[in-house]
């Protein structure tokens, strides 16, 4: 069982959270003219490393905040968690 430290509530068990995937994805800015390729990248392409991965988690059965987690995808070690406007 993963233990994830919500930056707002502290350490809780995995059951309280849901996963939101690659944290590096940025929605293209509103109104900005962008290429199809950039849209594709935003919608379909994700980092998929073996090792350190920055990802989003949602404390859905807790404070309901989204936040960032740095986790190893092979060992499941969690290195750090941070609020969305903080650096990992």
């Amino acid at each position: 069982m993963l233990e994830i430290k919500c930056p707002y509530c502290g350490k809780r068990s995995q059951n309280e959270f849901s996963y939101g995937g690659d944290a590096k994805i940025k929605r293209p800015e509103l109104g900005k003219e962008i290429s199809d390729k950039e849209w594709d990248n935003f919608v379909y392409y994700r980092d998929n490393p073996k090792g350190k991965h920055s990802e989003l988690w949602h404390h859905i059965s807790g404070c309901r905040q989204w936040f960032k987690v740095s986790r190893d995808t092979a060992s499941h070690e969690i290195f750090k968690t941070a609020k969305l406007d903080e650096d990992l």
């Binding site: 069982m1 993963l2 068990s13 849901s18 991965h53 990802e55 986790r71 092979a74 499941h76």
Partner: peptide
């Protein structure tokens, strides 16, 4: 399990 993994083993929940 619902999160990226290369671990070939899962979690109890």
């Amino acid at each position: 399990d619902g999160y990226n993994s290369y671990a070939q083993r899962g979690n109890l929940p």
